[in-house]
C-alpha cells in the first residue's frame, strides 16, 4: 500500500510540479521580479520618479529558475503524497477513484491549499506589508486543514451535521481573520500585487487539476497489480 501511494504520488507530483514551474516562470516570475525592483527601491510608484508602467524585460536566471523548478516539483510531490493517501483512504471506504473524477480531487485540493487561505491572506508579491511570519503560518495551516476537512465532508459526509460542519469549517478562519500588518506601507504597487495574486491562483488551479487527474489515473491503473 505504502509503495503504491509513494509511486503514484511522486510521479503525479513531479508532473504537476513541473507544469506549475513552467507556468510560474512564464506568468508569475516577471511580476515577482518587477515587484522586487520596487521592494529594493530601484523603482518607486509615487511622485515624479514614478516607475514605468511597461513591464521590464527579464531574462532567465539558470540557478534561480532551476531552484524554482526543483522546489515546485518538491512542493507538489508533498501535496501529491497527501492527495493519493486520501484517495487510498477513500477507496478503502468504498469510493471509486477514476481518471474522470480525478479533477474533483484536484479542485478540492486547490480550494484547500490555495483558494481558502488566499481569501483572507492573499498571495504576497515581494514588497507588500505583512504581519509577522509565525502567526501567518499558524493561520495558513489552520485554514488549510479546516478547508481540507470541509472538502472531505463535502465529498463523503452524510447528513445535516456534515453539511453544517462544511459551512463552519470554511467560514471560521475568515470570521476569525488572518493576521494583518500594523500599517499598509509596502513599496510594491497594488496593480502588481493584484496581478500576482490572481496569477498565483490561476496557475495553482491548472497545476492542481493536473495533479488530481494524474494522481487518479496512476492510482486507479495500479490497483490490479497491487497486492
Amino acid at each position: 500500500m505504502l509503495g503504491r501511494i509513494l509511486t503514484s504520488g511522486l510521479i503525479a507530483g513531479a508532473v504537476a510540479g513541473l507544469c506549475a514551474a513552467v507556468l510560474q516562470l512564464l506568468f508569475i516570475q516577471p511580476v515577482l521580479l518587477h515587484a522586487e525592483l520596487y521592494e529594493g527601491g530601484e523603482l518607486v510608484h509615487f511622485g515624479a520618479a514614478s516607475g514605468p508602467a511597461d513591464r521590464p524585460e527579464f531574462g532567465l536566471d539558470p540557478v534561480r529558475d532551476g531552484l524554482s523548478v526543483i522546489f515546485s516539483m518538491l512542493t507538489y510531490a508533498g501535496y501529491a503524497l497527501i492527495l493519493v493517501a486520501l484517495m487510498a483512504l477513500a477507496e478503502g471506504r468504498g469510493a471509486v477513484i477514476s481518471v474522470r473524477n480525478g479533477i474533483h480531487w484536484g479542485v478540492g485540493g486547490f480550494v484547500a491549499v490555495l483558494l481558502a487561505p488566499a481569501f483572507s491572506l492573499a498571495p504576497e508579491v515581494p514588497g507588500v506589508a505583512a504581519a509577522d511570519i509565525l502567526p501567518r503560518q499558524v493561520w495558513w495551516f489552520a485554514t488549510v486543514f479546516a478547508a481540507g476537512a470541509a472538502m472531505w465532508l463535502l465529498a463523503f459526509g452524510q447528513g445535516r451535521l456534515a453539511w453544517g460542519a462544511v459551512v463552519v469549517l470554511l467560514l471560521a478562519p475568515h470570521v476569525v481573520g488572518a493576521p494583518e500588518p500594523d500599517s499598509f506601507s509596502g513599496p510594491a504597487p497594488t496593480e502588481l500585487g493584484a496581478l500576482f495574486a490572481t496569477r498565483v491562483l490561476g496557475v495553482g488551479l491548472v497545476a492542481w487539476a493536473l495533479l488530481g487527474i494524474v494522481s487518479a489515473a496512476l492510482w486507479s491503473s495500479g490497483g490490479e497489480t497491487a497486492s
Binding site: 501511494i5 493517501a85 487510498a88
Partner: peptide, 21 residues
C-alpha cells in the same frame, strides 16, 4: 497495514510541504 501506509505517506507529504514551503 493499509491505514499505516496512508498515515506514513500523508505525514511524509506534509513534511515535504513544511520543508519546501
Amino acid at each position: 497495514s493499509a491505514y499505516l501506509g496512508v498515515l506514513v505517506a500523508a505525514f511524509l507529504g506534509l513534511g515535504i510541504v513544511v520543508l519546501a514551503g
